[in-house]
Nucleic acid binder design. Sequence first.
RNA 1: UGGGGCGUAGCCAAGUGGUAAGGCAUCGGGUUUUGAUCCCGUGUACCGCAGGUUCGAAUCCUGCCGCCCCAGCCA
Length: 558
Amino acid sequence: MNDIEPRDFIRKIIYDDLESGKHAEIVTRFPPEPNGYLHVGHVMAICLDFGVAAETGGRTFLRLDDTNPGKESPEFVEAIKDDVHWLGFDWEDRLTHASDYFDRLYESAIQLVEQGVAYVDSLSAEEIREHRGTLTESGRNSPYRDRSVEENLDLFRRMYAGEFGDGEHVLRAKIDMASPNMNMRDPAIYRIRHIPHQNAGDKWCIYPMYDYAHGMSDAYEGITHSLCTLEFEDHRPLYDWFLDQLQPEHRPRQIEFSRLNLAYTITSKRKLKALVDEGVVSGWNDPRMPTISGMRRRGYPPAALREFVKRAGVTKKDKLIEMGALETCVRDVLGETAPRRMAVLRPLKIVLTNYPEGQVELMEAMNHPGNPDFGTRELPFSRELWIEQDDFMEDAPRKFFRLKPGGEVRLRFGYIIRCDEAIKNDDGEVVELRCSYDPDTRSGTGTSDRKVKGTIHWASCAHAVDASVRLYDRLFTDANPNAAEDFHKVLNPGSLEIVAAKLEPSLASVDEAVQFERLGYFCRDSADDTVSTHVFNRIVTLRDSWAKLEKQAMQQQG
RNA sequence: UGGGGCGUAGCCAAGUGGUAAGGCAUCGGGUUUUGAUCCCGUGUACCGCAGGUUCGAAUCCUGCCGCCCCAGCCA
């Protein structure tokens, strides 16, 4: 427990409950429905649920909220488990399913019938909707609302026994059809579904609804604080109603907080699924996806995601957080942990005309400028090198301190070179540069302490490793695609660019995320990289104040 | 036009009657063989608006405005 850490309103409640002695231990749960992949929005909930319990020495359950078979599958539960673990949290032996409680839930439903607060309705779904009224008009009681306890008991048991088809009957809570809260207008508790269940097999043909199953599952597990998002605020009276009726041993408290929305991306499971199904992306774990598995494949460190939601905070105000906030967290983590390497994304060949043909020197390079513990490595240097196309400009502005005709630049960890001649093809494009190097300026050991303004990265043509590098950009062109009429219209056509890059030799085998100096952070693509074909993902670019200046200049020109 | 929430700088967010923390972004400057990192500095926030209470209000009261959620046998 840390008294200095600022506490959000939920932590205040929880710490108060601990101090007042209301609870001796905090028990929370993270309860996703296994009907899709987890995304950034869930990271907030996971960190809150597991975080607050861990901080107070409590426990957290990972509960698969699988009350709606047909939409749920074991594939999703496995993905959810992987994602939560990867994020850095452990439920130990507390992996449960709402379906683990189906027997108890059924028994308690019978109790509700016996208490006269639940009844079997035989209206069709459509009729029930008509009877529910509208936001401004109260609903009407179902003609079946006053069936006797005996008749309800008989009907409900026969629903359980499989005597009826889907939709013939439904068990409802008898509350108040005139309630201004729609959730209290006799909500359904059980529906008939003759389909097998991802965890319970084909034992059941009636399944409990979320509102009933969720609160009671919380109670069964001894959850002290049931944290969920704002849209369930209206459900709290119903959550409490079930607890009031059934009086379980433990009484959990539901507290709601706002969802976290990330700018330029979507977090609706339905829309994410559409992106996958329509082939807009390669799958749920496409590196452009805001899913946890997508961000993992992209190379975002779990610590960066945790830091991100921590900075975002827990409140009840709708959030639409800028992508830059997430990227800063990713850079902060990677900046400290990623070894530095060199790679050329868009190669332009240069020949050092005064460098001996066939000679190869090994240049010592630091693996991390701010941390000597990372050690050094050797880079082969030769007469023909690749440099970045963007690092040469024929008609360069004064402030461009990279390579230009007649100009000098330092090759990182190498020599200072001068551009003597630009060779062009028939289309007038620069295809090669003729340069000369200054032998007195070898990195570290140079006898000359000459300084030049710019330093650029490079790779030796004879030694470079070929790789396909995927450069990602935001998936949408609109800051809030969630609100767009049709998200297809705001898709960013340039969200993926693939370049044929030249890498320094050591990059042929790396498992961790690295920084390609001056470019950004990259990692091997876990799905497509093979021994023969190297495939890298750009995790995030480096901050680029030159690009910013260029952009401003462009805007000034119109 | 019913009910439930929310409104503090571009984006997040502290603050609960005593005269507006912090982070991200922005904009300057310094260091630098990554135009990165790092380090300094940088914001007149009509605290949604309008009244009121008070010596004093972002904080209390009243009215208004704006945004979000709810009419699944989804979660």
